[in-house]
Amino acid sequence: AVSDRLIGRKGVVMEAISPQNSGLVKVDGETWRATSGTVLDVGEEVSVKAIEGVKLVVEKLE
C-alpha cells in the first residue's frame, strides 16, 4: 500500500495530537490524520510507527 512507505519517515505536527484526540502531521509534503500515545504540540518532529486504517501512529522524535 502507498501508506506503507511512510513507516519510519519523519514528519511535523500540524495540529496538536493527544491520546484522546487525533491531529494532523505532514510527512513528505502530504498531510495525514495521526494518533499518538502522548501529547504532541504543533511544530514537534515525529516519526511514523504504524498505520491504522487511514491514520498514522506517530511518536516524538528523540
Rank of each mutant, 00 (worst) to 15 (best):
A1S: 11
A1W: 05
A1F: 05
A1V: 14
A1Q: 12
V2K: 04
V2G: 08
S3L: 10
S3T: 14
S3Y: 05
S3C: 06
S3V: 11
S3R: 05
D4H: 15
D4Q: 11
D4A: 09
D4I: 14
D4T: 14
R5Y: 15
R5W: 15
R5F: 15
L6G: 02
L6E: 02
I7G: 02
I7W: 03
I7C: 04
I7A: 03
I7T: 04
G8R: 04
G8T: 03
G8D: 03
G8A: 04
G8C: 04
G8F: 03
R9D: 03
R9F: 13
R9Q: 11
R9C: 05
K10R: 13
K10W: 11
G11W: 01
G11E: 00
G11Y: 01
V12L: 13
V12D: 05
V12P: 02
V13L: 03
V13F: 00
V13M: 03
V13H: 00
V13N: 00
M14P: 00
M14R: 06
M14V: 11
M14D: 04
M14F: 12
M14N: 05
M14I: 10
E15G: 09
E15T: 12
E15P: 00
E15A: 15
E15N: 09
E15D: 07
A16V: 09
A16T: 12
A16H: 13
A16S: 09
A16I: 11
I17T: 04
I17D: 01
S18L: 06
S18T: 15
S18V: 10
S18P: 04
P19S: 09
P19L: 06
Q20W: 15
Q20H: 11
Q20M: 11
N21K: 11
N21F: 13
N21V: 14
N21E: 10
N21T: 14
S22K: 05
S22L: 14
G23F: 03
G23Y: 12
G23E: 00
G23K: 01
G23I: 02
G23R: 01
V25S: 01
V25I: 06
K26Q: 11
K26E: 11
K26A: 12
V27D: 00
V27M: 04
V27G: 01
D28H: 07
D28A: 12
G29L: 08
G29A: 10
G29H: 13
G29S: 11
G29C: 08
E30T: 05
E30L: 10
E30K: 06
T31K: 09
T31S: 09
T31M: 11
T31W: 08
T31G: 04
T31N: 07
W32L: 04
W32R: 03
W32H: 06
R33F: 12
R33S: 10
R33W: 12
R33C: 04
R33T: 10
R33A: 09
A34P: 00
A34G: 04
A34S: 04
A34E: 00
T35C: 06
T35W: 15
T35H: 06
S36T: 03
S36W: 02
S36K: 01
S36H: 02
S36G: 05
S36N: 02
S36F: 02
G37M: 14
G37L: 15
G37T: 11
G37C: 08
T38I: 10
T38W: 15
T38F: 14
T38M: 14
V39E: 07
V39A: 13
V39W: 11
L40W: 04
L40R: 02
L40V: 08
L40A: 04
L40K: 02
L40H: 09
D41H: 13
D41T: 14
D41W: 14
D41K: 15
D41A: 13
V42N: 05
V42Q: 08
V42E: 06
G43F: 08
E45I: 12
E45P: 10
E45H: 14
E45D: 09
V46T: 02
V46E: 00
V46R: 00
V46A: 05
V46S: 02
V46W: 00
S47L: 13
S47R: 14
S47M: 13
S47G: 08
V48E: 00
V48H: 00
K49D: 03
K49F: 13
K49W: 11
K49M: 12
A50L: 05
A50K: 09
A50Q: 11
I51M: 08
I51H: 05
I51E: 02
E52K: 07
E52C: 08
E52M: 09
E52W: 13
E52I: 11
G53Q: 04
G53R: 04
G53C: 04
G53E: 05
G53H: 05
G53T: 04
V54D: 14
V54W: 15
V54N: 09
V54R: 05
K55M: 12
K55V: 15
K55E: 11
K55Q: 13
L56T: 02
L56C: 04
V57L: 09
V57R: 13
V57H: 08
V58Y: 00
V58D: 00
V58S: 01
E59R: 09
E59D: 11
E59K: 06
K60C: 04
K60P: 07
K60I: 05
K60W: 04
K60V: 05
L61K: 06
L61P: 05
E62F: 15
E62P: 07
E62G: 09
E62H: 15
E62R: 14
